[in-house]
Design a protein around this nucleic acid. Structure first.
Length: 275
DNA sequence: CAACCGCCCTGGGAGC
DNA sequence: TGCTCCCAGGGCGGTT
């Protein structure tokens, strides 16, 4: 489900929902086996702490407290939503985070690929989930020189490379296909055969599409919903994702192709995206 | 190290 | 209407 735009959208909605100076009144687990075990100590240590801010790093939500961060990954099907007093829990509600002077939030995740962890104050860059992450796509360090150097001499498909969170974070399966389409590079091309100019174009297109998707509230393919239960709309603006067999919206000639690359469905136009 | 593959889990949709 | 099969936006861990 969620790539960077969806996580960023959820972050903004949660921040607006909770406001400032909210103090945790309770953290409850309804099951302890999400993808990774939930830190049991949090049940006692989190209540009483004041939420200072909600941040996003890569596809992680980070609830900032004065001595660390509650880290939340949505996996493929995870969602945070507000639960009103007296409202019944529903299937796959796994965690509840309540604020004394604010709302109660529920983490729901049918597939349980999501997880929650604690990042201590001094672990922001060394925590096991964060230490290998590459630059944010909007960071000034994500330059054509950086990308081109990383791609050089690599035989893996360019699509697999830009989805590798060590290279750049936040680009998942959907936006990888879309960004490569806009950049005019076929997803199957060996990374080392991407030119310097194409690398520069790819950065631009990754940034453009992620920004546009954030503004549209993300993309909803199947189940993704943001914190207020609404669905994203960016899926209506895909050029290639899920359009197998349809005439290309750009050249109006070739039909959109698909195949599995790196275990993920991949879409491209054979005319607009040279090998 | 790089590349690849299987796997975690559940639900929705397609096809019969 | 109901069954079975296939697929899904992420990331880890093992193997070659």
């Amino acid at each position: 489900m969620p790539e960077l735009p969806e996580v960023e959208h959820v972050k903004r909605q949660l921040a607006a929902l909770i406001g400032t100076s909210a103090r945790v009144s309770a953290l409850e687990y309804f099951r302890k086996d999400l993808r990774f075990p939930l830190p049991k100590a949090l049940l006692k240590s989190l209540p009483g702490k004041e939420l200072l801010e909600i941040e996003r790093r890569a596809k992680y939500l980070l609830f900032k407290f004065d001595d660390g961060w509650l880290l939340s990954h949505l996996g493929m099907s995870g969602a945070w939503r507000e639960i009103k007093p007296g409202e019944e829990k529903i299937l796959h509600d796994h965690v509840r985070l309540s604020f004394a002077n604010g709302p109660s939030l529920i983490f729901n995740d049918p597939r349980r690929f999501g997880f929650i962890d604690w990042v201590a104050e001094n672990e922001k860059t060394s925590h096991v989930r964060l230490e290998h992450l590459g630059p944010e796509p909007f960071d000034e360090s994500f330059t054509p020189e950086y990308l081109f150097a990383k791609l050089r001499k690599r035989s893996a498909p360019i699509k697999s490379m830009i989805m590798d969170q060590r290279l750049v974070v936040g680009v998942g399966n959907i936006y990888a296909s879309e960004a490569l389409f806009r950049a005019g590079v076929r997803p199957s091309r060996a990374a080392g055969r991407v030119t310097r100019e194409e690398a520069a174009k790819l950065i631009t297109e990754i940034q453009i599409i992620l920004k546009a998707a954030i503004d549209a509230g993300g993309s909803t393919i199947r189940t993704y919903k943001s914190a207020d239960g609404s669905r994203g709309s960016f899926q209506s603006r895909f050029f290639v994702y899920g359009r197998e067999g349809e005439v290309c919206l750009s050249c109006q000639k070739a039909k959109i192709s698909t195949k599995v690359i790196g275990g993920r469905s991949t879409f491209w136009c054979s005319r607009c995206q040279p090998k």
